[in-house]
């Protein structure tokens, strides 16, 4: 397969996401301009200009009208997808690490870092109307986190609860009505870099610095499967059509210069969802992969790396013909 290489960023990619239909691909990087691309031909639709710091997270609502970004310049911004104009701006006390629209996109969540004497905090906001008063609007709910900071987040159970992944490897489920913990588990030993749903939101996969990716049941937070690698896992995604997961990772960016790219294992690695066994790899990036995601139709996937490139791979027939031997 010949990947499409999207070269719109000057620094490493932090997160990439497809919209619901999969025709657009949103990419955020440590430079201050998130981009949006047509996934089919790699044409850039535009860039959202306005941030002044590294973009840590990006999300798009299900109708692809609003886009949300959180950045290191202590703001969380809402953008209009069609025009690329900034419509909402929320100043925060510290940098915004994660953000996500709820399933209905009536609400959104963002979390701030524990930095500059500010605690890590989860904010739930109403995003139904975005006008001039938006930036002064009080959040619906604030949950201060006393322990380890939130490093990844997911909306759960049709916007009734939240799942957060933390720096110490903990996963906590929050009830939104009360703002209390429902459940918490600690299956990972280190930072959880990424969490992604499967297609029907019954399971989610975590990617952790402790060299594993794990599959959990969304309701009970029961550990279902573990995918082991030799390097930190930065991102993991579940195929919407096959029982496959893809892991992206590699050694930490700061150690990259001391080893060759062969030893670095910068491949996207495909594991069988059930048997936890690796069955394929795709090479290409020059640095660790920071974010992977499947196209909603499952026929292609994209990966964004520390090297600043986003690569969109359309699977060959060999991928679809491949049968796992068991």
């Amino acid at each position: 397969m010949k990947p499409l290489i999207l070269q719109g960023h000057e620094r490493s990619i932090t997160q990439i996401k497809y919209n619901r239909e999969g025709d657009l691909l949103f990419s955020a990087s440590k430079d201050n301009k998130p981009n949006v691309w047509y996934s089919l031909n790699g044409e850039r639709l535009g860039s959202f200009n306005g941030h002044q710091g590294a973009i840590w997270c990006i999300d798009v609502d299900w109708t692809t009208t609003k886009c949300m970004t959180g950045a290191g310049d202590n703001t969380c911004k809402i953008w209009d997808c069609e025009t690329g104009k900034e419509t909402g701006n929320i100043p925060t006390a510290s940098s915004v690490r994660t953000c996500m629209f709820s399933y209905s996109a009536n609400m959104a969540v963002y979390t701030t870092d524990k930095a500059m004497k500010q605690p890590c905090e989860i904010f739930i906001i109403d995003v139904r109307t975005i006008d001039d008063s938006f930036s002064r609007q009080e959040p619906i709910l604030r949950i201060p986190i006393s322990g380890s900071r939130v490093s990844s987040i997911l909306w759960d159970n049709l916007d009734e609860s939240l799942i957060t992944g933390h720096e110490n490897g903990e996963i906590i489920q929050w009830d939104l009505k009360t703002g209390k913990k429902i459940n918490s588990i600690k299956e990972h030993d280190q930072l959880i870099n990424d969490m992604q749903w499967n297609k029907d939101c019954t399971m989610f996969i975590t990617a952790s610095k402790d060299h594993t990716a794990k599959l959990f049941d969304a309701e009970t937070l029961m550990l279902l499967k573990t995918y082991k690698t030799e390097r930190p896992v930065n991102s993991a995604a579940i195929s919407p059509i096959a029982e496959h997961v893809v892991l992206g990772g590699g050694q930490e960016a700061m150690e990259v210069t001391t080893t060759s790219s062969r030893a670095g294992k910068f491949d996207s690695r495909f594991f069988h969802l059930v048997f936890e066994e690796e069955f394929a790899r795709v090479k290409g990036h020059f640095g660790p992969i920071n974010s992977v995601c499947f196209h909603p139709d499952g026929k292609s996937y994209a990966s964004g790396g520390e090297d600043g490139f986003v690569r969109v791979h359309s699977f060959d027939s060999s991928y679809f013909e491949y049968n796992f031997d068991y």
Binding site: L4, I5, G8, F270, V282
Partner: peptide
Amino acid sequence: TTFIGEDVYM
């Protein structure tokens, strides 16, 4: 901003 990469194989 967009170019086709070298052929990679799974």
